[in-house]
Simulated assay, not measured.
Amino acid sequence: MSTEVLTPEARVRSRRPVLFLVVAALVAVAAVVAIVVGRGSTSAVPLAPDNPQPAGAQAAATILGEQGVRVRTVSTTADAVRVAGPGTTLLVTATGRLDDDQLAAVRDTGADLVLGQPTFLPDLEPLTDRVEPSPVGSDVPVPAACADPDATAAGTLSRSVGGVVALGDDVELCFPTAEGAGALATWEQDGRAVAVLADATLLSNEHLADAGNAALVLRLLGGNEELVWYLPTVGDTVGDDDAGGTAALVPPTVRVLGLQLLVLTVVVLLWGGRRLGRVVTEPMPVVVRSAETTLGRGRLYRRARDHAHAAAGLRAGCATRVATRLGVPPSARPEVLVAAVARATGREEAAVGALLYGPPPTSDAGLTRLTHELDTLESEVHPS
């Protein structure tokens, strides 16, 4: 039996991998901390009160906070029901993403309601039967033309995407966009104030300073000391106490630790992996523009009368673009995307599913018709 004695140099060499792992772990932790600190408390969610981008609403939330209004942000119906109540204002930035059960839950909170973007819903039942959405809006400034104090204080709105039609005699319509329709509807219901703003983008940083938008928005949202800012998300349900799936069960510290381990794993793989040398480019005999290859592929499809491949490409491109606009992840199942598009456009789910995933056309005329229908569908889907 022999005993191996390590020299001082060998001991140093044996400790180098361990020392490297320790240093890599410290670097990973520092990188994660820098990312978290650098990211701050801002987001990129449209109409979010912490989004400083043009589509965000950080300006309105900041002004409300300076006026003494406490802004609380929620992203699920369960949280909105839990936080909102009598004596608070509940802002729903996109009612088009709520189903009947969610609308009923919002109604039963007892809070003053400010509802945004109802244009893509067939109606607002069962939340209220006093109004219904109208597709007629205005691209030019519209005057208040009503006696509502908030509207008269604003004077004019810069624009309105869509409108609201009054179904009850007690509904005050302001900023008329068409005969019997306006950009704002207000009324009293069950002892609380309700306001429907046809164009919720008036809250955004981009449009808040236009015309009288800021005066109207701040008066509608600042009526109580507490404002619950509800940003509906695709896939949220009224009884979903476990919002976000299993990710909600994981404590934030565990998620941060997991990210650190991921960064450390990447560092170790890069350190221990085999180096393949620098990338060597090979000169191509000819450079072909991407547009030319697309046109060439299209001519081949037309010459071969391969309507199925052409239709599949058109449908895939349309599905990708509308999913991006609606915030649906690329990995979502077709039925999830179909449901989101149906809610956003007011179409039947069966019609949307047949258009995006139906059988391929069998003729040039059918392919042309499919192209026009997909283009129409895409034009009806707007980011919320």
Rank of each mutant, 00 (worst) to 15 (best):
residue 85 G to P: 01
residue 324 T to D: 11
residue 352 V to L: 05
residue 67 Q to V: 10
residue 190 D to K: 03
residue 183 A to S: 12
residue 109 T to M: 11
residue 324 T to Q: 12
residue 67 Q to G: 04
residue 60 A to M: 11
residue 59 A to K: 06
residue 333 R to C: 07
residue 32 V to P: 03
residue 163 G to I: 02
residue 341 V to L: 12
residue 360 P to H: 14
residue 237 T to E: 13
residue 260 Q to K: 01
residue 221 L to S: 08
residue 368 T to K: 05
residue 146 C to W: 11
residue 315 R to D: 06
residue 128 T to S: 12
residue 62 T to K: 04
residue 7 T to R: 11
residue 94 A to D: 14
residue 363 S to E: 08
residue 119 T to Q: 13
residue 179 E to W: 13
residue 374 L to K: 00
residue 319 A to H: 02
residue 170 D to V: 03
residue 311 A to V: 13
residue 344 A to D: 09
residue 107 R to P: 06
residue 184 L to A: 07
residue 253 T to P: 06
residue 339 A to P: 03
residue 187 W to V: 06
residue 273 G to I: 05
residue 160 S to A: 11
residue 359 P to N: 04
residue 28 A to K: 00
residue 164 V to Y: 01
residue 278 R to Q: 07
residue 3 T to P: 04
residue 45 V to A: 15
residue 105 A to I: 03
residue 129 D to W: 04
residue 208 L to I: 09
residue 85 G to I: 00
residue 373 E to Q: 08
residue 31 A to D: 12
residue 266 V to P: 02
residue 100 D to R: 10
residue 271 W to L: 14
residue 357 Y to R: 00
residue 200 A to W: 03
residue 190 D to V: 02
residue 313 G to C: 08
residue 56 G to C: 09
residue 115 L to E: 07
residue 342 A to P: 01
residue 171 V to E: 01
residue 151 A to T: 00
residue 44 A to L: 13
residue 130 R to C: 08
residue 293 T to A: 14
residue 331 S to G: 10
residue 305 R to H: 07
residue 189 Q to N: 02
residue 25 A to L: 15
residue 137 G to I: 10
residue 342 A to V: 04
residue 44 A to G: 15
residue 322 V to S: 01
residue 378 E to C: 08
residue 229 W to G: 12
residue 142 V to C: 08
residue 261 L to K: 10
residue 257 L to T: 11
residue 152 T to A: 09
residue 382 H to C: 05
residue 285 P to G: 09
